[in-house]
Deep mutational scan, measured.
Amino acid sequence: IGSLMYASIFGNVSAIIQRLYSGTARYHTQMLRVREFIRFHQIPNPLRQRLEEYFQHAWSYTNGIDMNAVLKGFPECLQADICLHLNRSLLQHCKPFRGATKGCLRALAMKFKTTHAPPGDTLVHAGDLLTALYFISRGSIEILRGDVVVAILGKNDIFGEPLNLYARPGKSNGDVRALTYCDLHKIHRDDLLEVLDMYPEFSDHFWSSLEITFNLRDTNMIPGSPGSTELEGGFSRQRKRKLSFRRRTDKDTEQPGEVSALGPGRAGAGPSSRGRPGGPWGESPSSGPSSPESSEDEGPGRSSSPLRLVPFSSPRPPGEPPGGEPLMEDCEKSSDTCNPLSGAFSGVSNIFSFWGDSRGRQYQELPRCPAPTPSLLNIPLSSPGRRPRGDVESRLDALQRQLNRLETRLSADMATVLQLLQRQMTLVPPAYSAVTTPGPGPTSTSPLLPVSPLPTLTLDSLSQVSQFMACEELPPGAPELPQEGPTRRLSLPGQLGALTSQPLHRHGSDPG
Results as ranks from 00 to 15, higher is better:
Gly127Trp: 01
Gly127His: 01
Asp128Ser: 04
Thr131Arg: 06
Leu133Ser: 02
Phe135Ile: 06
Ser137Glu: 10
Ile141Val: 10
Glu142Thr: 11
Ile143Thr: 02
Leu144Met: 09
Arg145Val: 06
Arg145Asp: 10
Val148Thr: 13
Val149Pro: 08
Val150Cys: 06
Leu153Lys: 01
Gly154Cys: 09
Asn156Glu: 11
Asp157Thr: 03
Gly160Trp: 01
Glu161Phe: 02
Leu163Trp: 08
Asn164Ala: 07
Leu165His: 11
Ala167Gln: 08
Arg168Ile: 11
Pro169Leu: 04
Ser172Phe: 01
Asp175Ser: 07
Asp175Lys: 06
Val176Asn: 03
Arg177Gly: 02
Leu179Cys: 08
Tyr181Val: 04
Asp183Glu: 07
Asp183Val: 11
Lys186Arg: 11
Lys186Phe: 12
Ile187Cys: 03
Ile187Ser: 01
Asp190Arg: 07
Asp191Met: 01
Leu192Thr: 03
Leu193His: 11
Leu193Thr: 06
Asp197Arg: 10
Met198Val: 09
Tyr199Thr: 01
Pro200Asp: 06
Glu201Pro: 03
Asp204Ala: 15
His205Asn: 13
Phe206Ala: 01
Leu210Asn: 03
Leu216Cys: 01
Arg217Tyr: 02
Thr219Ser: 10
Asn220Gln: 13
Pro223Glu: 09
Gly224Glu: 08
Ser225Trp: 09
Gly227Arg: 10
Ser228Val: 09
Glu232Ala: 12
Gly233Gln: 09
Gly233Glu: 12
Gly234Ala: 12
Gly234Phe: 06
Gly234Asp: 11
Phe235Pro: 10
Arg237Phe: 08
Arg239Cys: 15
Arg241Cys: 08
Leu243His: 07
Phe245Ser: 10
Arg247Met: 11
Arg247Ile: 12
Thr249Gly: 09
Thr249Met: 13
Asp252Pro: 13
Glu254Ala: 10
Pro256Asn: 12
Gly257Asn: 10
Glu258Tyr: 07
Val259Met: 11
Val259Thr: 10
Ser260Asn: 15
Leu262Asp: 07
Leu262His: 10
Ala267Asp: 14
Pro271Ser: 14
Pro271His: 04
Ser272Leu: 12
Ser273Phe: 13
Gly282Gln: 14
Gly282Ala: 11
Pro285Gly: 06
Ser286Pro: 14
Gly288Asp: 08
Ser291Cys: 15
Pro292Leu: 10
Ser294His: 13
Ser294Gln: 15
Glu296Met: 04
Glu296Val: 08
Asp297Ala: 12
Glu298Gln: 09
Gly299His: 06
Pro300Gly: 15
Arg302Ile: 04
Arg302Cys: 14
Ser303Ala: 09
Ser303Val: 11
Leu309Asn: 13
Pro315Gly: 10
Glu320Asn: 14
Pro321Asp: 08
Glu325Asp: 08
Glu325Gly: 13
Met328Ser: 12
Glu332Asn: 09
Ser335Glu: 13
Asp336Val: 08
Asp336Gly: 09
Thr337Glu: 11
Cys338Thr: 07
Cys338Val: 14
Asn339Val: 10
Asn339Asp: 13
Asn339Arg: 12
Pro340Phe: 04
Leu341Tyr: 08
Ala344Val: 09
Ser346Lys: 09
Gly347Leu: 05
Ser349Cys: 06
Ile351Gln: 08
Ser353Tyr: 04
Phe354Trp: 12
Asp357Ser: 11
Asp357Met: 15
Ser358Asp: 08
Arg359Lys: 04
Gln362Leu: 08
Tyr363Phe: 15
Arg368Leu: 08
Cys369Ile: 09
Cys369Lys: 03
Pro372Lys: 10
Leu376Lys: 14
Leu377Asp: 09
Leu377Ala: 03
Leu381Phe: 08
Ser382His: 11
Arg386Ala: 08
Arg395Glu: 04
Leu396Val: 04
Leu399Thr: 03
Gln400Phe: 05
Gln402Glu: 04
Gln402Ile: 05
Leu403Asn: 06
Arg405Trp: 05
Leu406Gly: 02
Glu407Val: 08
Arg409Ala: 06
Leu410Val: 08
Ala412Tyr: 05
Met414Gly: 04
Ala415Asp: 12
Thr416Ser: 15
Thr416Arg: 13
Val417Ile: 11
Val417Glu: 04
Val417His: 11
Leu421Thr: 06
Leu421Lys: 05
Gln422Ile: 03
Gln422His: 13
Arg423Val: 09
Arg423Ile: 05
Met425Asp: 07
Val428Ala: 07
Val428Lys: 08
Pro429Arg: 09
Tyr432Glu: 11
Ala434Met: 10
Ala434Ile: 09
Val435Pro: 10
Val435Thr: 09
Thr436Pro: 13
Thr436Phe: 09
Gly439Phe: 15
Gly439Ala: 11
Gly439Ser: 11
Pro442His: 13
Thr443Ser: 14
Thr445Gln: 04
Leu449Ile: 06
Pro450Phe: 04
Val451Phe: 08
Ser452Glu: 14
Ser452Ala: 14
Ser452Gly: 12
Ser452Ile: 07
Thr456Asp: 06
Thr456Met: 10
Leu457Lys: 08
Leu457Thr: 13
Leu457Phe: 10
Asp460Ile: 01
Leu462Ala: 12
Ser463Asn: 11
Met469Ile: 10
Met469Asn: 07
Glu472Ser: 11
Glu472Thr: 06
Glu472Trp: 11
Pro475Arg: 07
Pro475Glu: 09
Pro476Tyr: 04
Ala478Asn: 04
Pro479Asp: 11
Glu480Arg: 10
Glu480Met: 13
Pro493Cys: 11
Gly494Asp: 07
Gly494Leu: 12
Gln495Gly: 12
Ala498Leu: 10
Thr500Trp: 10
Ser501Pro: 11
Arg506Gly: 10
Gly508Asp: 13
Asp510Met: 05
Asp510Gln: 07
Asp510Pro: 12
